[in-house]
C-alpha cells in the first residue's frame, strides 16, 4: 500500500517541482489550484523535496525550498529537476486523442486554443503533421447539436421530428432533454419522451427538426439512468436465432448479438428484437442464405423477409 502512495507522490513531485523552479514566487494557494491538489498535500510534498539532493547532502547540495511570509514558493538548487519527465506514450495518446475528438465536435473552432495546443503537443511528441491520430465521434448537424445542448442547459422541453429506424417512420414528439453524448460513432440525446411516456435515447443524426417550446422540463433525469448503455434490451423483447454464412461474420460486431453455435461455414447468432420492421429489413438485406432457426415470441419471423422482398419487387417490376 505504501509503495503505491510513494510512487503516486513521486509522479506529482516530479511534475510540479519543475513548474515551481521555472515560475518562482507563486502562492501556495495558486499552485494548489493550478495542479488540482489540496494545499495540504502540496505542502507535504514540498517538505519532502526539502530533504532531497545530491551527495554529500550538505545544505548547499540539497534542494532549497523557500516559502515566504506571504506563502510564495521558490525552489532553488534543483537544476536536474528543471524540466518534467517526458509524457509516456499512453499520456501523449490520451491527450492527443481527447483533443482531436473534441475538435471533431461540430461547432468547435478549428483554429482556436485547442487546435493550437494540439499542434504544439504534436510537435513535442514527434507527430510531424499532427495527423497521426484522428478521432471522429459522429456526424451531426451543428445547428441541431447546438439546439439540443442549449435546451439541456436551459432545462426547456423541445419538440423533435424524429426518424425511428427500427419502425421506419417519422414522428413528432415532445421531450425533456437530459444529456447529449457520443458513443460508438454516434451522437445521442438522452431524454424523457412524453409520447412514449418513458426515457429514450435518440440518435442525433436522425433528428430531422428541433423546435423550442419555452416550457420548462418537468421530468428530471433519473441519476441511475445516466450511465446506461446505448442498447437497452427489455426482458420481454422477443428473441430470434439466425443461421448465417461465414461471409456474413461482420454482423457479429455490427449488432448486439450472441454467437450460439459455430460450424465454420455457418454460424448461429441470437438477437433480441425490439422492433419487428428492423428485423424484417435485416433479413431482406442478408438475403436468401440466412435461415431463421428459432423464433421465440415471433411466430411469423420466417415470413417477414418474404413479405418485404415481395413488396420491394413490386416496385422494381412496375
Amino acid at each position: 500500500m505504501s509503495r503505491t502512495t510513494a510512487s503516486d507522490r513521486l509522479r506529482r513531485v516530479l511534475a510540479i517541482v519543475p513548474y515551481i523552479v521555472a515560475n518562482p514566487g507563486q502562492k501556495v494557494a495558486a499552485l494548489a489550484d493550478r495542479f488540482g491538489v489540496s494545499e495540504k498535500s502540496l505542502l507535504e510534498d514540498l517538505s519532502v523535496v526539502f530533504m532531497v539532493g545530491l551527495p554529500p547532502y550538505s545544505p548547499d547540495s540539497l534542494i532549497d525550498v523557500e516559502i515566504d511570509d506571504e506563502s510564495r514558493v521558490t525552489i532553488g538548487l534543483a537544476d536536474y529537476f528543471s524540466r518534467p519527465l517526458r509524457l509516456t506514450p499512453a499520456q501523449g495518446l490520451g491527450l492527443v486523442a481527447a483533443s482531436d475528438a473534441l475538435l471533431s465536435v461540430p461547432g468547435t473552432d478549428p483554429d482556436g486554443s485547442l487546435a493550437q495546443a494540439l499542434r504544439k503537443l504534436g510537435n513535442v511528441l514527434g507527430m510531424s503533421d499532427g495527423d497521426s491520430v484522428d478521432v471522429f465521434l459522429g456526424s451531426a448537424e451543428t445547428s441541431v447539436l447546438e439546439q439540443l445542448r442549449s435546451a439541456v442547459t436551459s432545462g426547456l422541453e423541445i419538440d423533435l421530428e424524429y426518424y425511428s429506424y427500427g419502425r421506419d417512420a417519422t414522428s413528432r414528439r415532445r421531450v425533456a432533454p437530459w444529456r447529449v453524448f457520443a458513443d460508438s460513432g454516434f451522437w445521442y440525446l438522452h431524454a424523457w419522451c412524453h409520447l412514449a411516456d418513458g426515457e429514450r435515447l435518440f440518435r442525433v443524426d436522425r433528428i430531422e427538426a428541433v423546435a423550442d417550446t419555452g416550457t420548462p422540463s418537468t421530468v428530471l433525469p433519473d441519476p441511475s439512468a445516466a450511465e446506461k448503455g446505448v442498447f437497452n434490451a427489455s426482458d420481454t423483447d422477443p428473441n430470434v436465432v439466425l443461421r448465417l454464412a461465414s461471409s456474413d461474420r461482420w454482423i457479429i460486431e455490427a449488432f448486439p448479438c450472441e454467437v450460439v453455435a459455430d460450424e465454420g461455414d455457418t454460424f448461429d447468432i441470437s438477437l433480441v428484437i425490439s422492433a419487428v420492421p428492423w428485423l424484417q429489413r435485416l433479413l431482406v438485406r442478408l438475403g436468401s442464405k440466412v435461415e431463421v432457426v428459432a423464433e421465440d415470441g415471433l411466430p411469423q419471423a420466417s415470413d417477414l423477409a418474404y413479405e418485404a422482398a415481395s413488396r420491394i419487387l413490386q416496385r422494381y417490376h412496375q
Binding site: 511534475a15 518534467p84 499520456q91 481527447a98
Partner: peptide
C-alpha cells in the same frame, strides 16, 4: 478536452501536471 473525452483506462492528470 481531457474532461469531456476520456480514453478508457487512461488518466490524463499526470500528463497535464507535466505540461
Amino acid at each position: 478536452a481531457s474532461l469531456t473525452v476520456r480514453l478508457d483506462g487512461l488518466d490524463d492528470q499526470e500528463a497535464l501536471w507535466k505540461l
